[in-house]
Design a protein around this nucleic acid. Structure first.
Length: 504
RNA sequence: GCGGCUGUAGUCUAAUGGCAGGACUUGAGCUUCCCAAGCUCACAACGCGGGUUCGAUUCCCGCCAGCCGCACCA
């Protein structure tokens, strides 16, 4: 299927069924912003909960914290964002072309102008006689373009601040507090699931590049000399990872390499271990097909200067034209804590077993909205039937917005009266949907399309012996337990403790 | 941000300088003993603003949004 056809198909599902749509589309939309509807909000919440449950169990001292979306300028100066998250743009007075001033200077002089002060730019451009690369026109005075949204806080607006461009800084500036509160243990994991904001020049491709988006990030603080020895590497050493090294990732696919092989190739043991855990999350928890997942290594010139090692998680999405980044695993060294120590003048060193050092950071960073969309792309399937075709959203049961539907086979003969108490009972425990309108096939199809994993049907036999049918979404197979056992059965099916085919 | 294309019910689409039509969906009812069956009825749209015109969904301009290409994405 062509990319846009698939994209339109998914966006149509999203809009029709209450997953996601453009913010303020009542007013024509708002580029780079999306709202979640009732199914989308539930699914997103479940995805976040699954992420939290999985990643906080990677270590003993791993916790969720929650920090503000607005940060004072000083903290973002220390992180480098005020300086490096700004592009100096110059506009051609003749053809209107926008260019990055530092790139023009670098091209002309072959020197780096990373983070050059804006007031220097115009002078330098004039000195080197740089003109528009397209039409040779002259440039208007340069303007800084800030990827961060600036705010003026307080009644006089005198306190400069920004909407956070990433959640990570909330963790770094709270590290010392949590290190004390959690009684000076390393490794220490601190996670945030929350919103981040970037004033993208050109938001495109739906939820792929948004101006307000949700990150799930785990920052692991550790002693680089001892971290490897605390890792249970035996658990993963023979696991195969799907990896595209920097020189090969343009070819589109991925190679399989065991964790041991990757360590032999020079990657740190702790780093490979966490790659394995991240891959398990995608393949086992989210059930992304193996041929749609890979780690893509970022080479020297592609990664930020402070990232010593950087692999992105990528999921192949037909709606976006191939493998697209969902998140990254970044070994950031002591860059962040050192930066905050230098600016705040508060020591970020720790002393453990007589050794004093600044902890290193391994960052596991995920875009929730991107994962959300990738799941729709990977799981929404057109299925041919005898009479035509229908759509099934094969979401993992843990992520499905509605978990079970209760459906009387007919809207008469006392079946609704029998079904209602069953629904009320299940609704105490699960997100449960009741529907008695229209043919049973139509109601199954409706549930299939929003990914409801199980449907319970009340028929005439129920009136006689109290049994009901449970129908599984992906196979349409049915089982027939007593209605009194439904609660425990569905609970086990949803949590993965029981398999449908092994039900009696 | 630049250039090109586009914008009609929830979705997909038709036509038109003079009452905007259909299909699917949705809702109500009938029917129906397990996978979008059938019948009846109903709800529901010209992205926003301005201009030309007796009259604009249609032509023109601006804006917004989407797509493609470029640029951008520490």
């Amino acid at each position: 299927m062509k990319r846009m056809d698939r994209y339109d198909e998914l966006m149509s599902l999203s809009v029709r069924k209450g997953f996601i749509w453009p913010t303020a589309d009542l007013y024509g939309g708002f580029a780079g912003f999306y709202d979640y509807g009732h199914n989308g909000a539930l699914m997103k919440r479940r995805l976040e909960d699954l992420w939290i449950d999985y990643f906080l169990h990677l270590g003993e001292d791993y916790y969720l914290i929650d920090t503000t979306s607005i940060l004072p300028e000083a903290s973002l100066k220390a992180s480098g964002h005020v300086e490096h998250f700004t592009d100096i743009l110059v506009t051609c007075t003749k053809c209107g072309e926008n260019c990055r001033a530092d790139h023009l200077l670098e091209e002309a002089t072959k020197k780096s102008y990373e983070g050059i002060p804006p007031q220097e730019i115009d002078k330098l451009l004039a000195e080197h006689k740089i003109r528009c690369p397209k039409c040779k026109g002259a440039f208007a005075p340069s303007k800084p373009f800030h990827m961060m949204f600036p705010l003026m806080v307080g009644p006089m607006g005198k306190d400069p601040a920004y909407l956070r461009p990433e959640t990570a800084q909330g963790v770094y500036i709270n590290f010392k507090r949590e290190f004390e509160a959690l009684r000076r243990h390393l490794p220490l994991g601190l996670a945030i699931v929350g919103r981040a904001f970037r004033n993208e020049i050109s938001p495109r491709q739906g939820t792929y590049r948004m101006r307000e988006f949700i990150q799930a990030e785990l920052q692991i603080f550790f002693n680089p000399k001892t971290f490897d020895s605390s890792i249970a590497f035996d658990d993963v050493q023979s696991s195969e990872l799907l990896v595209a090294r920097a020189d090969k990732k343009d070819q589109g696919g991925a190679d399989r390499a065991t964790c041991s092989e990757l360590v032999k190739s020079g990657l740190p043991l702790f780093y490979v271990y966490h790659l394995a855990k991240v891959q398990d999350f995608f393949l086992k928890e989210l059930a992304v097909p193996a041929d749609r997942f890979r780690f893509a290594e970022l080479g020297e010139g592609e990664r930020a200067f402070y990232n010593r090692i950087h692999f992105d998680m990528e999921v192949k999405q037909d709606s976006l034209g191939g493998f697209k980044e969902i998140g990254g695993v970044h070994y950031r060294g002591d860059h962040d804590l050192t930066g905050h120590q230098n600016t705040s003048k508060v020591s970020q060193t720790v002393t453990i077993d007589g050794e004093t050092f600044i902890p290193h950071v391994l960052e596991l960073s995920f875009g929730i909205d991107r994962m959300f969309w990738a799941l729709l792309d990977a799981k929404y399937e057109k299925v041919k039937t005898e009479k035509g075709e229908r759509y099934v959203l094969h979401l993992p049961p843990k992520i499905a917005p509605t978990q079970v539907a209760v459906l009387p086979l007919l809207g008469k003969d006392g079946l609704p009266e029998k079904a209602m108490p069953i629904y009320e009972q299940l609704a105490k425990e699960f997100k449960c949907f009741y529907d008695e309108g229209g043919s049973i096939g139509r109601r199954y199809a409706r549930m299939d399309e929003i990914g409801t994993p199980y449907c319970v049907t009340i028929d005439h036999q129920t009136l006689q012996d109290g049994t009901v049918t449970i129908r599984e979404r992906d196979t349409a197979a049915q089982k027939r337990p007593a209605s009194s056992e439904l609660g425990p059965i569905i609970g086990k099916l949803l949590s993965g403790q029981a398999k449908f085919e092994s039900l009696p």
